[in-house]
Design a binder for these strands. Structure first.
Length: 591
RNA sequence: GGUCUCAUAGCUCAACUGGAUAGAGCACUGGUUUUCUAAACCAGGGGUUACAGGUUCGAUCCCUGUUGGGACUACCA
């Protein structure tokens, strides 16, 4: 049962009987009434006044009277063209008691029968993860969970960028150092160790460039002729020629990075069903190039390079194969799209990738459409904004990054400070306290990153630490812990339903709970976890107001009120816990 | 140069996709606990939604232009 569809039905009937207007009931838009007006839902009549041939006020009035007469609502008022509706209390309570025991309340069938591959994370293996990667990982994970709750069949995929000039740079610097450092010998986490050499490479590369520029070369020349880069390119050629020693070093160093990533992923709480390695996929797509040439979708220049003309799509000409016959990035992506489709027959293939690649994905989809691939329309780029620092964009090579592992450590330490201050850890072991610090610290971080619209870029200021009060992850966790505590103290309760005459705070809470399924669908449709984050904050806020105003399990409270309020608390707690789960955040029972 | 994108309170973000008087948090000022977890609750100040036009019953949202940020525009990945 759904409160909104009931009113939609009523308005639908009213429009028909009073004005002979016949529109789809589900297209009737209802909004929550603004705070300063009396009512629960508001219907805007302006769009219908032309057809009704009456003034907005008169139209709203007649619809309202119809709804009242046929007992869809308990009262209404009209302000200009806005029809404000007050619900029957009994229908609110009916809704509450049925939803609370409805096993499918936290699910929708929006994606039933559809398969979706969510590709996210997709790191390079030459450096550790930073804050930007955290945003990517959390978004990808959360979107996957939201889609699952909408009954999609989800495959989480990670395409690891394990080859190319970047990893050769780290390998070269490591080799040249002659130190034979390993994660074991240094105690440095593998991805950080490799990243250290990547930075070392860049430092010497830069100094070589400035030396050459000092000798009178142009910047561009110097960048191409610096000895380091020439050696790195030579190493890449050896790698591509399957040189044994190069491959061995490559495997060793990538192995260190994977060990490091594994720990970071675990701590972030993200996981994958399928890994793809670029070293296996970088030759894919060449077959497709031939197919495109045969179909005359692509064309070949005199030098042998292969191109596609996408000017009809508002894009440019794009290279698909170099004149030496090697493939480029887009060629690989064409190949992996096909590979994934062969493997999973997906309906939708999501790519959680930063917005700097907007153009790339337009091109990819444009190519696949021209090739008439059946999966072309299922390609969706979930584009998210960069995480910026006050100083500008993060750059790994220049060391202006917020390291993922460091940041998680800081969040843990910050949480510990606050938890010890609050002094609520009585009866907990040292180990339990540490777990709590981790869970709360990670909640602050995750919520901070997920509450903003993915499409917007996000500013992170390392100088002021992430909050634990107000609109934050810990606030929401706290609300749940509070609920948990009051339920424990309440003793036996039942659904006797003797309680009537809801106070505003209770009514607001039921209405907030009622909107959960529509939020879940919206978050899934828009691939947007911030919908869930903002919703659960609003829900927690309403609960805290209710908690402050209404005694729940205090001494002397009448049984009927207690039963209802405990039930309301339970349902709210379950909803909060589920929302947090969708965001990858744990909900501790006590904090 | 071309294409895309963003601009909302001192700061970080909302605004149900065109609806009423633009809302939260942080910060600031003041209040709430002999009673269920004060990481809470309540109140107050703070806005010409970058600027100028247009579209209509109605614009933060759509269109045009201006200004200012960012990204992309490699035979790199």
């Amino acid at each position: 049962m759904n409160l909104i569809s009931n009113i939609q039905t009523g308005i639908h009937q009213a429009l028909q009987s009073a004005f002979g207007i016949d529109i789809d009931a589900s297209s009737i838009k209802l909004e929550r009434t603004l705070q300063d007006f009396k009512g629960d839902f508001t219907w805007v009549v302006f769009p219908y006044v032309k057809q009704a041939r009456k003034s907005p006020e008169q139209t709203a009035l007649e619809i309202g009277e119809y709804l009242l007469l046929h007992q869809f609502i308990s009262e209404f008022n009209v302000v200009k063209g806005f029809l404000n509706i007050v619900l029957n209390e009994s229908s609110l309570l009916d809704y509450f008691y049925s939803a609370r025991h409805d096993a499918s309340h936290f699910k929708t069938d929006f994606g039933k029968g559809k398969k979706v591959v969510v590709e996210y994370s997709s790191p390079n293996t030459n450096k550790p993860l930073h804050l930007g990667h955290i945003r990517n990982n959390l978004l990808g994970y959360s979107i996957s969970e939201i889609l699952k709750a909408n009954d999609y069949e989800v495959v989480k995929a990670n395409l690891i960028n394990d080859r190319g000039i970047h990893i050769c740079k780290s390998m070269l610097a490591w080799q040249q150092s002659g130190l034979n450092e390993t994660p074991q010998s240094t105690g440095i986490k593998g991805d950080h160790l490799v990243g250290k050499y990547y930075v070392a490479f860049d430092r010497s590369y830069k100094s070589e460039i400035s030396l050459l520029v000092g000798e009178g070369r142009s910047q561009e020349e110097a960048e191409k002729q610096a000895p380091s880069i020439l050696l790195a390119q030579a190493m890449l050629r050896k790698w591509e020629a399957n040189d044994v020693d190069t491959l061995k070093l490559w495997e060793t160093m990538n192995g260190w990075v994977y060990e490091g990533f594994k720990l970071s992923y675990q701590r972030l709480g993200v996981d994958f069903d399928r890994y793809y390695y670029e070293s296996n996929t970088y030759l894919l797509g060449k077959k497709t190039v031939q197919e495109g040439l045969d179909k005359h979708v692509f064309y070949q220049k005199d030098d042998g390079s292969v191109w596609i003309d996408l000017t009809s799509e508002g894009l440019d000409h794009k290279l698909l194969l170099r004149s030496d016959g090697t493939s480029v990035y887009i060629t690989q992506d064409i190949g992996t799209a096909q590979l994934k489709f062969d493997e999973f027959q997906y309906d939708i293939s999501l790519y959680v990738v930063g917005n700097e690649q907007d153009y790339h994905f337009k091109v990819l989809q444009g190519i696949l459409k021209k090739m008439e691939k059946p999966y072309a329309h299922g390609i969706v780029h979930v584009s998210y904004g960069m995480v910026d620092l006050p100083s500008g964009k993060m750059k790994s090579r220049e060391g202006t990054v917020v390291d993922a592992d460091d940041l998680m450590d800081e969040m843990h330490a910050e949480a510990r400070k606050i938890i010890l201050e609050r002094g609520k850890t009585e009866g907990m072991t040292q180990e339990q306290v540490e777990i709590l610090c981790e869970v709360v610290g990670m909640a602050a971080l995750k919520y901070y990153l997920l509450r903003v619209d993915p499409q917007k870029r996000l500013l992170f200021n390392p100088a002021d630490s992430i909050d634990f009060e107000g609109n934050t992850g810990p606030y929401i966790q706290y609300t749940n812990a509070r609920i948990n505590s009051v339920i424990l103290k309440s003793g036996e309760t039942d659904d006797s339903r003797g309680y009537t005459r809801l106070v505003p705070a209770e009514k607001e809470l039921i209405l907030a709970l009622h909107s959960y399924p529509s939020i879940l669908i919206k978050a899934g449709e828009m691939h947007n976890p911030s919908e869930i984050a903002n919703y659960v904050y609003d829900l927690a806020k309403r609960y805290n107001r209710f908690y402050y105003e209404c005694p729940i399990a205090k001494d002397g409270i009448v049984k009927e009120a207690k039963c209802f309020r405990v039930a309301l608390s339970k349902f709210t707690g379950e909803t909060i816990t589920e929302c947090l789960r969708l965001l990858g955040i744990e909900a501790p029972g006590k904090m």
